[in-house]
Simulated assay, not measured.
Amino acid sequence: MKGTYCLIIRSDGSEMDVGRLGRRVFQKGFYVYVGSGFGSLEGRIRRHLKKEKRLRWHIDYLLREAVVERVLYTTDERRLECTISEKLHGPSSVTGFGCSDCRCSSHLHYFESLDDATGAVLEAMEGSGARVSEWNL
């Protein structure tokens, strides 16, 4: 299975080093991380959900202290990662996070509530013409 996914992550608020990005402050609330798995979508999502892993990507640092509440994904064959991320972008998106291999300003976006984050993801995915599924946690 291949496609694009959004991790909806609860943060209790923290400050941490995020690899080469340096020190970052994460507000209390919910973050949406947009990624893709065109080698193996299932493998990528499972890796994010594991607690013990080598710190490789920016999201690995955040997930040491935050909790994945929901995973929404699409198996659409189009590469929608940047399109969806751009639709989620707002003033509290974390600049430079998760986008070192594209021209986006961020792939991590802040929302105050789980409902706001979920609604924004559904709107972005469905607005891109993608069929949305939910990963069973």
Rank of each mutant, 00 (worst) to 15 (best):
I9F: 08
H48P: 00
S128Y: 03
N136W: 06
G119D: 06
V94E: 08
C99Q: 03
E52L: 05
L108F: 01
K87T: 09
A120Q: 07
L62R: 08
D12S: 11
E69Q: 14
R103F: 00
Y110N: 07
L108S: 12
H89V: 00
Y61T: 03
V34G: 12
S11G: 10
F111S: 05
G98A: 01
C82M: 03
L114F: 10
S93F: 01
T83L: 13
S113G: 04
A66W: 10
T75C: 06
E81T: 15
F30N: 07
G90A: 02
S100C: 08
V18A: 09
V34E: 14
S133T: 08
C99M: 02
H89A: 07
V132W: 01
C102G: 10
G19L: 04
H89D: 04
D116S: 15
I45C: 13
N136F: 05
D12H: 13
R56C: 15
V32R: 05
R46L: 07
L21R: 14
W57P: 10
I59Y: 14
L7M: 07
F30M: 13
E86S: 14
Y33E: 06
H109M: 06
S133M: 06
M1P: 02
S85R: 09
I45M: 09
V121P: 14
M125A: 02
F26R: 13
L55A: 11
L49T: 07
E77L: 08
D60S: 08
G35Y: 02
S105D: 05
Y61I: 01
W57S: 13
S40K: 00
L21G: 15
Y31E: 00
P91L: 01
R47E: 00
A117Y: 04
S36Q: 08
A117N: 10
G13Q: 04
I8Y: 02
T75L: 04
D76E: 09
K87G: 04
G129S: 14
G37M: 01
F38H: 08
G3V: 06
P91S: 04
T95P: 11
S11W: 03
S128T: 14
S105F: 03
